[in-house]
């Protein structure tokens, strides 16, 4: 039986077994490859998306459990129209290999939506599930502070 999903405001019908994780539905079925596979066990955060605005690890959400509207990195902004968080990432030249950054940005966006002016400790708490093997953490932190300031002005 086909499952109906709303992703970035668009409805998709997906005909797959119930237990296929949302991550693979996004990547291999719908073709939204911005969300990355890193570990498959919710230990790295590369697959972070929003469900009804909440940051979740899409590798751990079976298709049948997707409880709300899904937003992926593609839904946050585009190269032509980046969100404030994405722009802050560019301003601080955060990415190195870049593979984890979709997940980092999704986690940061959810943090800023819930807490528009996070302290360093709050950033530590929110971001510690997102691994970056290139070690871009100092610039991620700076970018979150910048995005926070920009969003306050707006």
């Amino acid at each position: 039986m086909a499952t109906s999903l709303t992703i970035n405001g668009k409805t998709h019908q997906v005909d797959l077994p119930d237990d296929v994780p949302l991550l693979w539905v996004l990547r291999d079925e719908i073709g939204l490859t911005g969300t990355k596979f890193g570990c498959g066990v919710a230990a790295c955060g590369a697959c972070t998306v929003h469900i009804d605005g909440e940051a979740v690890r899409s590798c751990q959400v079976p298709l049948s459990d997707v409880w709300g509207e899904v937003t992926t990195i593609e839904g946050v902004g585009t190269p032509e129209a980046m969100s404030a968080v994405q722009q802050a990432w560019v301003d601080h030249q955060v990415a190195q290999c870049g593979y984890c950054q979709s997940g980092q940005i999704m986690q940061a966006a959810a943090l800023l939506a819930a807490n528009p002016a996070p302290t360093d400790t709050e950033i530590d708490e929110a971001m510690q599930g997102n691994l970056c093997r290139c070690g871009t953490y100092p610039r991620i932190r700076a970018a979150i502070h910048t995005a926070s300031a920009k969003m306050k002005e707006a």
Partner: peptide, 20 residues
């Protein structure tokens, strides 16, 4: 400014796993 930065901040950079 790094030429790959916008792609990497928007999920549009193509890694091996993204080839379709």
């Amino acid at each position: 400014p790094r030429l790959d930065m916008v792609e990497k901040a928007t999920g549009t950079a193509e890694f091996a796993i993204d080839v379709r």
